[in-house]
Simulated assay, not measured.
Amino acid sequence: MVVSRTVSRKLLIAAGASLATVGLLAGCAAGTPTDTGTETGGGESTGGNDETGDTVVIGFSGPAADHGWLGAINSAAIAEAAKYPDIELKVAEGTNDANLQISQVETFVNEGVDAIVLLPTDGAALTEAAIAAMEAGVPVVNVDREFSSPFAARTTILGDNYGMGVSAGTYICEQLGDNPDAVIAEIAGIDSLPLTQDRTQGFNDALADCGLSVSNRVAADFTVAGGEAVTSQLLSAAPQIDAIWNHDDDQGIGVLAAIAAAGRDEFFMVGGAGSANAMREIQSGESVLQATVIYPSTQAADGIRLARLIAQGKVMSDLVEAAVPARIVLYAPVVTAENVEEFLPTAFES
């Protein structure tokens, strides 16, 4: 069943805010049941969600692909939609212009799409446009950068920025926790962004748990040039370092260049995001880069899958409360030489 354009604002708002109410919307139709399917309050648990159903039109608006991770977000979403013959995907031009993205959302609504997957260039700026889409009966799947209102999305899917910091800090604690005088450095992204603040907070909290703290901190701008420049400053200011956490593997290319130019190798480094080039550095065993923390570039691809389920009135098969959740936060695992082969095939290129 395709979600009707006449679904009321009240129902869609409730769907985004309460899993119990979500069951009334998403549970109205299920995929082909398996022999072990069981009835639940949220619908029927099924194993047939991948079977072709009614064709649904999904609008996708993402960022400009000016960063390896962002490019991977877009390409993964398009590739995921191509796997399903019952998805017609409308892709808006990637943009960092909030006003242009607002107009893209409005166009999707006017064209009568069945769902929208949106990674907003600015969550707050896109909130009203997303609310308007929801009011028009078009469910919105919010990816990565959150809207400022719970009424703006049926489902939100996020990477775990705080969890990235926790994972990085925990790994460093495992390596250096018996050295209370260890010198820890941090190379952040853009400090004004909540995601950077969350990563730093998680990192500090994890280090504090084993009695360590950050001694030297700089912030770059998620670019190669920015990473190289601030790392040069950091290395000049800190003659001895035991470990570095760099928030982003794209800027990490510049970070590693600065480290090589300085001839420093007395420390190990942990990266962030999980790029393929970072994983190859880890795999080589010849780099200061010893680990990286995943920030999944599959978020929009997952958003496409969830939008399909919602628009077709299907439910999730692996939950007792089978309705598509209102909020999903993806795990932030640590990749090391021991498990890099597991993660490398799906890593993005910087």
Rank of each mutant, 00 (worst) to 15 (best):
N277T: 11
L24G: 04
Y331A: 09
D54Y: 04
T107K: 14
A260D: 12
E338K: 15
E342P: 15
Q101V: 00
Y162R: 12
L126Y: 05
D54S: 13
A92N: 13
N179G: 12
F203W: 07
L306P: 14
G263Y: 05
V270L: 02
R199Y: 05
V320D: 09
L70C: 01
I187L: 15
V117S: 03
I282C: 08
A311D: 01
E342L: 15
D250Y: 11
V214D: 01
W69R: 09
L193D: 11
A347Q: 11
A347R: 10
T155D: 00
V335H: 13
Q197L: 02
I184N: 00
A300E: 13
I282N: 07
I58F: 03
G62D: 03
G177F: 15
S287H: 09
Q251Y: 04
G254K: 10
E174D: 12
I310W: 01
P239L: 02
A81T: 12
V7T: 05
L234A: 08
E338H: 15
V183Q: 07
G169C: 06
S4V: 11
A98W: 06
A136W: 05
G16D: 01
I310S: 06
T32S: 02
Y162S: 01
D265E: 13
T21M: 14
V320C: 07
A237Q: 11
D198W: 01
A125Q: 02
T34N: 15
E106F: 08
I253A: 08
P85A: 12
Y84Q: 15
G27I: 06
V166R: 14
R327L: 06
P325L: 09
A17W: 07
A262C: 03
I13H: 08
E186G: 08
L25H: 04
L235Q: 03
R305P: 04
G112N: 06
N246C: 15
V141N: 04
V329A: 03
T46E: 07
E88T: 14
G48A: 05
D191L: 10
A65H: 00
A133V: 07
A208I: 01
P150G: 00
Y295N: 12
F268L: 03
I253L: 13
V329M: 10
A323G: 15
G23V: 08
T127D: 06
T21K: 14
D242F: 07
P33K: 09
S232A: 14
E266T: 02
G41K: 14
C28E: 10
G252W: 02
V166N: 04
A130Q: 11
L158P: 05
F60I: 02
D191I: 09
A168I: 02
N96M: 01
S75H: 09
L119F: 07
P296V: 00
N142C: 03
A273M: 12
E186A: 09
Q283T: 05
A322H: 13
V340K: 07
G211L: 05
F348W: 15
V315D: 02
T231P: 05
Q197N: 02
N204S: 03
G271E: 00
L25E: 02
I244D: 00
D248A: 02
D302P: 09
G47Q: 10
Q240P: 11
L24T: 06
L195S: 08
I87L: 04
P85Y: 06
I172V: 00
N339I: 11
E51D: 14
I172K: 01
D122M: 00
T52S: 11
A26Q: 06
A276S: 05
R264Q: 03
I131N: 09
P85H: 07
S213P: 10
V56Q: 04
D250C: 06
M269Y: 00
G252T: 04
T21R: 13
V22S: 09
